[in-house]
Amino acid sequence: MIDKRVIGKKYKVSSFEIENGKIRELARAIGDNNPVFYNKDAAAKDGYAGLALPPTFATVFALAGGLMTVVKDLKIDMAKLLHGGQEYQYFAEIKPGDSVSGETEITGVIEKSGKGGIMDLVIMETTYYNQDNKKVLCDKCTLVVKR
């Protein structure tokens, strides 16, 4: 089980630079052929400053930045871990060349019984800022850990 005393614990998220290749790679893996994710001219035509980012691109920052640090710190067994929910709020455009960084806070640990038995829900919230210290995105992630 996850100790409730971790609520309020904070983790620094290392800075992540947005690159065109990573944007295309993620869009390709999703199977999303929207040209704004691949072609600068197409993106410019739709008013983007560079390639647009798929709405779930923030998962790349989270995984590069420190989500696994939290998973390790809480000693979560990968075989018992599922993603329960994910929420993004978008405040400003993020474009290639930007660097985003932030801080993750564990905001909740909730015990829940489901079809697979008793589980712990771990809620983590991260606010990301760009290199100009402008708030760009909030990420609220719920992990499900089976006991």
Binding site: I30, D32, V36, A52, T56
Partner: peptide
């Protein structure tokens, strides 16, 4: 990956209104 399926949801919404219009996207798996 749950996030792959959420990626499909992102594709669905941006096919409709584009990326810039999106203010919030929330899912439960």
């Amino acid at each position: 990956h749950g996030m792959l399926t959420m990626g499909f949801v992102g594709q669905f919404i941006t096919n409709w209104v584009g990326v810039k219009s999106l203010k919030k996207l929330a899912v439960q798996f």
